[in-house]
Amino acid sequence: MSTTQIKFYQVGSFAVGNRLLREDERSVQSDPERTNALTSGHRACQGCGEALGARYALDAAMRATNDQLIAVNATGCLEVFSTPYPESSWRVAWLHSLFGNAPAVATGVAAALKAKGNHTTRVVAQGGDGATVDIGMGPLSGMFERNDDVLYICYDNEAYMNTGVQRSGATPPAARTATTQAVGAHPGNVFGQGKYLPKIAMAHDIPYVATATIADLRDLEAKVERAMTMHGARYLHVLVPCPLGWGSASCDTIKIARLATQSGLFPVFEAVNGEVVASSKIRHKVPVEEYLKLQARYSHLFSPQRNDQVIDHLQRIADKNIERYELMGE
């Protein structure tokens, strides 16, 4: 099994800024002439993981297509903070229709382009985890099985943040949300529920499925670029911490995303035609506790008293991921 290379400039849970690199090694984001799908001045919260993920993903897609790109957006934070009429932060042709239909709308865009003989313009659809794994899963599965020429990007912050942090099908066990409160005998979200959409996507045998986080933006960019070299239905699942919903410090967004991968809770991998072909190896394995304790949604695991039983359960989930996706080793 080949692996996705981890870039040298990453040291532990810290990334070296562009200014410390040689000019030719700097990321494109330091280039004032770079593509700019999502401009500054939007209304996202401080430290928003989704805004960062969307900007890098769509910028990469624009570069990969020479700006010949149309983006379809599901309802959610990303839509709300970017387009309060009459303002728009998008410098890409952009369409928002509904919460649960972004994949089908994107199918329609792709079909129209094909009918018109436009083979250069490409289509990206994007939405949060609620739009993707819950309300829009029917249209997403339909888009997958027809192998429509769309890259769908899910920005996963593990709950319905736009409506005030309610549980989604992507909310992890034990996490406190507004509808899985930290009360009762089993505080937080229930164990044994939830779904992991990357595996569901792979079950459709689509050309490309990958996961990424905003802790490794070059990896995210590389995966978008790779996806845009392919045709057919492609799926990218990006972990984007949410300071508001997770109860974390705005300055810790990237650190938390990195701890999610380094603990094994969020496996980063690529799958081609339904088979995993590469995974990002864990460089410094950390216990899940390090990831959990930075987030108020898990604070019930540590106070008023420590809940070792639940922490151990979460550790076993992380260990299982490490085994299943071969996250340790070279």
Binding site: I70, A104, G108, A112, G138
Partner: peptide, 22 residues
């Protein structure tokens, strides 16, 4: 293009994307 969709909700959604693309 003739698209066999998975529901009427998707049918109208595909139509929205297509019509918005002209």
């Amino acid at each position: 293009e003739f698209i066999n969709v998975e529901s009427e909700f998707a049918a109208m959604s595909v139509a929205i994307g297509s019509s918005a693309t002209g």
